[in-house]
Design a protein around this nucleic acid. Sequence first.
DNA 1: AATAATATGAACATTGTGTCAGATAATATA
DNA 2: TATATTATCTGACACAATGTTCATATTATT
Lengths: 201, 201
Amino acid sequence: MKQDRRITRTRAQLKESLWNLILKKGYDAITISDITDHANLGRTTFYLHYKDKDDLLTKSIDETANELVQRLDTFQPGIGKLKPATELIFEHAAENAEFYRILLQGHGVQTTTGRVQEIINHHITRGFELALAQLGGKEILSLPLPLLIQFLSTSLLGIVIWWLENEMPFSPEEMTKQYYQLLMNGIGGILRPVLRKEADY
Amino acid sequence: MKQDRRITRTRAQLKESLWNLILKKGYDAITISDITDHANLGRTTFYLHYKDKDDLLTKSIDETANELVQRLDTFQPGIGKLKPATELIFEHAAENAEFYRILLQGHGVQTTTGRVQEIINHHITRGFELALAQLGGKEILSLPLPLLIQFLSTSLLGIVIWWLENEMPFSPEEMTKQYYQLLMNGIGGILRPVLRKEADY
DNA sequence: AATAATATGAACATTGTGTCAGATAATATA
DNA sequence: TATATTATCTGACACAATGTTCATATTATT
C-alpha cells in the first residue's frame, strides 16, 4: 500500500511555489492563497497537508537539511575529519545555493543580526583600509579583505551570542582576551596535541 | 520649540511594551492591540507614530544600535584599536543584554540559520568529544569547549554566507583552504606587519 | 486662560485565516 | 475493468487583525 501519487505531487508543488514566492516577495508577504494560486491548487488543499505557512517552511527546510546530515554522517567522526567535513559543507552549499541564500539570510525583519553586524563590519573595514593604505595597498593580503572582515565579525558576533545565551559566565575583559587569542593565533595551538594522537589525520 | 512631552512619553511606552511582549509571546504573535493595551493607549494612537509593527521594531532597534555606533566612533580607527573595540562591544552587550538576547537570536521562523548551525555544531562537538576522551578529558583545553565550537561554526557559516552572497568566487576546495588557514593559524600572521607599523598599538 | 497639538473611541471596509460539507475527480487495488 | 478509496475543489462561514476616518475629549505650551 504505497502513497497516493497526488499527495507527493501536491506537496512538491507547494514547496516549489514557496521557494519561488520567497524570491519574489519575501516570506512574510506571502499568503496561503499566493502559494496555492501559484501551484494551481485549491486553497483548502493546503490545509490538508500543512498546518500553516511556517509548517510548510520548516518541513521544506528539514528535507534539505537532512541531506546535509546524512552526508556528514558518512564520515567517522574525529578531529582529523574537520577539514573534509568543511569542504563537504561548501559543496553542499554550492549545490543548493538558492536554498542556502534564501534561508541563511533569514526573512522578515531579521535585519537585526544584520544591523549589528553591519555596524561591526563597517567599523573594522575602515580601520583596515586606513592601515593598509599606509602600507601601500591591499596586495600584502593573501586573501580578499571582505572575506577576512566577515571572518572577524561573524566569529565575534557568534561568541557574543554564546556568551549571552549562557548567562555571561566571564567578564567582558576575559571574553575579549579569549576571543583575541583564538583570532590571532587560531586553534592550531589547542588542536595540535589532539591531532598528533589521531591516527587518521 | 521642543517636542511635546506626550509624544516622547507615548513612544517610550510603545517601545517598552514591544520589548516586554517579545519576551512573553515572541514578535510574530504580537498584535497592535497587544502593544497598545499593554501600554494603556488607544489603538489609533499607535498609527499616529508608526506605520506598522515592523516600523516600531526597526526604529527601536536603531535607537540602541546608534548608541553602539557612537561609542565605537570615539576611537580613532586603526587596527591597533581592534582589541579595545572588541571589548567595547562585549560591554555594550552586557549593558543591553536583554536587547541583544532578543534581537541577535532573531524572531519568527528564523530557525533557519539556527537549524543549519545546530547541525554543524552537533557534528563538530561529537568529533571533539571523542578525541578529547581518548586524551583523558577536557582539562587540556584552555577554554570551554562550547565556546570553541561556537567560534568554529559561526565563523564557518559566516564565510559560507559571504561566499554565496558574492557569487561563489572560489571553488569549495579553495574556500576550505582559506578558511582552514584562518582557523588554524589565526590572523596574526596577516596582521603582524600591519601592527608593527602602527604607532598607537 | 487661550490655543494648538495630541490622544481617544467608535465605526468601517478590507484582507487573511482556518474549517466545513457536499460534490467531483483521480488513483489504487482486486 | 470495475469498485472502493482517497484527494481535491468549490463556496460559504465565523473570526481576527489591519489600517483609516472623524468627531470629541484631553493635555501641553505660551
